[in-house]
Structure formats: C-alpha cells, structure tokens
C-alpha cells in the first residue's frame, strides 16, 4: 500500500495490529493522544502512515494530528537508536555539570543531541529531571539509570554496548559456521 512506503516488514505488521485494535477505540478526539502513545509504543516513532491511520480513524485531518503530535516532547518522527542515551538536564544535574556529560556523549558518538548514529545503534536525547537528583549528574542508557556520571563513565557505557554487540556478532558467526 502506498501509505506504508518506507516502513520495514516489522513496522507494517505492527501497524496492521494497531489497525485491528482501532475498532475498540471510539472515534472521539479525546482519544487522540492515548492513540498516538499506543502507536509510538508499538513502533517507537510515528511514521507518516501511522499519522494518516490515526487521522482517518478519528475523522481528523492529518495536519491536525501532526500538529498535536509535534507539540509534545514524547513523540518522535524518526526511529530512535537501539540504545537511546538520555542525559538529564534537570536543575540538579545542570548544577553538577550535566552539560559536560551530554557533550561527551556527543563527542564520543559523533552525533548531536536529537540525532541517531548512522548504524542506528545509539541516539542522544536530553531529558528534564528524572527524579534522582541526589545522584546528579544522571544519564540513562536504554532503561538503565546511571548516577554520578563522569566523562570516564561515558566511555565505559558506550564501550560496554559495543563489546556486547561484538560478542553477539561473534556468536552469530560461530553458529553460522557450524
């Protein structure tokens, strides 16, 4: 279908699931944000096809849906990395040098905040207080929270992911050889 251009197979399947779930949700505007949240949970971002789908279901114009989605920090329109890095830029973390941690992630991953590495392995985002100010500065790698961050720890975290990946690749390779 034209609408699904640019999506991979998994994404098309996820979208089909959502389409079948839509029947349960009344076509009322108040369900717009919960619906977008549901889509993003399944696809990790909001591709154009999903916005069209939601608009169709709620009888809204795609412009309107896109306008609402772009208002909120939660929604993204490009896929995130497999290991999203989120650096806390809340007050306590700022006072303790959170910007230095963010910059060091940017330097080491060679991307800017809001971007994803070309191999889609990492992405960097800034977040406001994650509620652990006593551990400032704080960063999250995936869902794991790391307190009392230092530049050295930044390198360690990235390295750990890369080693895991390397290991997984070797194991795959081993299996393929066998």
């Amino acid at each position: 279908m034209l609408m699904e251009m640019g999506l991979d197979r998994e994404e098309i399947a996820a979208l089909a699931t959502i389409r079948s779930e839509l029947k349960e949700i009344p076509a009322q505007r108040r369900y717009l944000i919960p619906l977008l949240q549901r889509v993003q949970q399944a696809l990790s971002y909001l591709p154009q096809a999903a916005i069209q789908l939601v608009a169709q279901h709620l009888h809204l114009s795609p412009s309107e849906v896109y306008g609402v989605a772009t208002f909120y920090n939660q929604f993204r329109f490009t896929p995130p990395g497999r290991h999203p890095v989120r650096v806390c830029m809340g007050t306590a973390c700022h006072v303790k040098g959170g910007d230095i941690i963010l910059e060091h992630f940017e330097r080491k991953l060679e991307i800017k905040e809001g971007e994803t590495t070309p191999d889609r392995e990492f992405s960097i985002e800034r977040v406001a207080c994650v509620g652990c100010c006593a551990l400032a500065p704080v960063a999250l790698m995936g869902d794991a929270l790391h307190g009392h961050m230092m530049t050295g720890k930044v390198e360690g975290l990235i390295l750990r992911v890369q080693i895991e990946k390397e290991k997984a690749r070797r194991e795959m390779g081993d299996r393929d050889e066998r």
């Binding site: 108040r30 369900y31 944000i33 609402v68 920090n73």
Partner: peptide, 26 residues
Amino acid sequence: IFQGSGAFVCGEETALIRSMEGFRGT
C-alpha cells in the same frame, strides 16, 4: 488515568484541559 505526553506548559490548567480534549496543549 490520563498520561501526559511531556510538555511543561500542560501543568497549566487550561493547557492541561486542552491536552485531555485531544488538542495541542496551549
């Protein structure tokens, strides 16, 4: 429960209401 999507201004009560109604939280 209504989950807000991360906009500081939605703590303001009229914006909060707009966002629950499915609009931009202005």
